[in-house]
Structure formats: C-alpha cells, structure tokens
Design a protein around this nucleic acid. Structure first.
Lengths: 151, 151
DNA sequence: TCCATTTCGTTAGCTGAGCTAATGATTTAG
DNA sequence: CTAAATCATTAGCTCAGCTAACGAAATGGA
C-alpha cells in the first residue's frame, strides 16, 4: 500500500477510469444516424465477428448478465440486424447471427461513431499515436482478465 | 480514408472505444460498499478537487447536460457528501462544495473501486506500466477536446 | 425605469443500460 | 423416470443520459 510503484498503479487505474468515463460520454451522442449506441454496437460487433453464438456466450463475451443481453439482442433483432434461431441440438439455447444488413451497418456505423475520435487520433503527433497503439494491447489484457480475485 | 495511417487511427479509436466499454462495465458495480457508482464518483472527484463550483461548470467539466448533473448532485447531497449554497453575487447559481465526509469517502471509495484494477496494473511488467502511464496524457488530451468539429 | 431577453437551475418525461429474482422450457443425472 | 441443473426470458427495480418546458434572477435597451 505504500510503495511508490503501487501508488503509481492506483493513479494509473484512476486515470484510466476517468478517461473511460469521459471518452464514452463523449461518444455516446455521436452515433445518432444509425440508431446504434455503444452497447448495441459492441454486441453486434461480437456477433458479426465471432459468428453465430448463443446468448449466454455473448453475455459472457460482453461481460454482462443474460437479461441485459436479451434486451440488446431483441433491439438488434427488431432492427433486422441479427436473427435468432433455436439450436437443433439443444433447444434451450438460441443461435444469434448477424444479418447481411447488420454486417453492412456495422462497418458504416462503427466507423461513423468513432470517426471524429479517429480524426483526432490521426491528428496527433506520431509519437502519441504509437503510445496509444501500444496501450491497446495492455488494455485488452486487463479488460479480459477477471477483476475480482476471491482471496 | 485510405492511407494506412488513417486506417490505423480508426483501428485505434475503435479499440479504445471497445476497451472503454468493457473497462467501465467491469468497474460498474464493484464499489457497492460506498454506494457511489462511476458518474457520482467522477463528479465528487471534480467537486473535491476543483473546489466549490457552479452546477453549470460542473456539468461542463463532466461533459454532461445540466439536468443530468442536477440529479447526480442531489444524490450526493442526500448522502451528505456535498452541499449546495446559493451564490450571493448571482442568486440564480449555486455553489457546490464537498463536505469533509465527501472528501474522506472519495479517497476511500475511489481507491476501493479501482483497487482491483490497480492490483492488475501493478502486476504488469514495468514496460506495460510505462505504456499505460504514457497513454493517459494522450487520452486526457483527447477527452478534453471537442469531438465534433463543425466544418 | 421598465419590459424583453438571456442565463441558470430544476422539473417532467422519455429511452435505455445494468442488476436480481423468479419462471418456463429443456437437458442431464441419478 | 423423477430431480436437479442449465438456458433464456420476464418482471421489476435503480440510475444515467437526453430534450423540452418552466420559474427565477440578471442584463440590456428603449
């Protein structure tokens, strides 16, 4: 609790926490044209990329509870971006796939959503760009690791 | 739209978008003990750090509309973490300050909330830690710049 | 001076994300 | 063949965002 390294880790964690909040708040309102907000876009991305998968696995991938994912998927289905089909082997589960329209919209909307952010990143000095690029790998490592160690 | 640099910027932007979503979902309800979630914690942090300030300025700092901030501040006030006092010079505005209890809780709760993340960061190789550390400055630059350039 | 305009915060009312608990349907185990 | 486990959904809650509308206060012209 008192080594400078640990303090630095806490400062870094808090700074990322804060940066994540503000980044998402900023991107929240930008989409509008597609009607896809962050959670739906993120889910659609997983569906399109990871192929047909069950709701449970999708919820796990998105680190969300099943009821939450049910709603997101329903909204996507209503918009004709994904389809649900019950599995033949296990009829409790459903397979969720992206429609061609979903895949097409994904590319457009996702780019549009982060377009302005991308423009800003592009305008950065290449040194800064490299820093961000390198940080992504580390961030992914962090966000894909369970946070709560039960001991 | 077709230079590799621009594509790289878009990929970086999308990766950060995704990372931000998952990071926040992960931290979302970790605190529980304090009853402070991300937006409230973030607001309280600004109030405690930036001293007494008006609701409008706070909303600007948090990149949120006034009604949203009204609710957050009211919640914090109910918990006795901040106080509102009408300004003498301009009675339309209110000055929001953190109580000593608010400041005390801020340190505890904020640390607790990001504690597990900090632990993970601390466990990273120092090379990775440096990358994250450097990325923060760049991220702050991005999140404090208006996204939509109207032209 | 007085009325119109602007500014600040709040209220009302909406959408949507997140959760837990409970339920129905199916599969698996004993 | 029944009991337990698993999967998705529904119900019901809290809370974060927003816009629109409003009252109160400050400001600026005529």
């Amino acid at each position: 609790m008192s080594t400078s390294r640990q303090l630095d880790a806490e400062a870094t964690a808090q700074a990322f926490h804060s940066a994540a909040i503000h980044l998402l708040r900023k991107l929240r309102r930008v989409d509008s044209s597609s009607g896809l907000n962050a959670p739906r876009l993120s889910a659609l991305s997983v569906i399109a990329f990871a192929g047909p998968l069950t709701l449970g696995r999708l919820a796990d991938a998105e680190q969300v509870r099943p009821p939450t994912m049910t709603r997101i998927v329903n909204a996507l289905e209503t918009k004709g971006l994904v389809t649900k089909s019950s599995s033949a082997s296990d009829r409790r589960t459903i397979h969720i796939s992206a429609t061609t329209r979903g895949k097409r919209l994904l590319l457009l909307a996702r780019n549009r959503r982060v377009e302005s952010l991308a423009r800003q990143i592009h305008a950065l000095p290449s040194h800064d760009k490299k820093i961000l690029h390198d940080a992504i790998a580390v961030l992914n490592k962090l966000t894909r690791t369970p946070l709560v160690r039960t001991s």
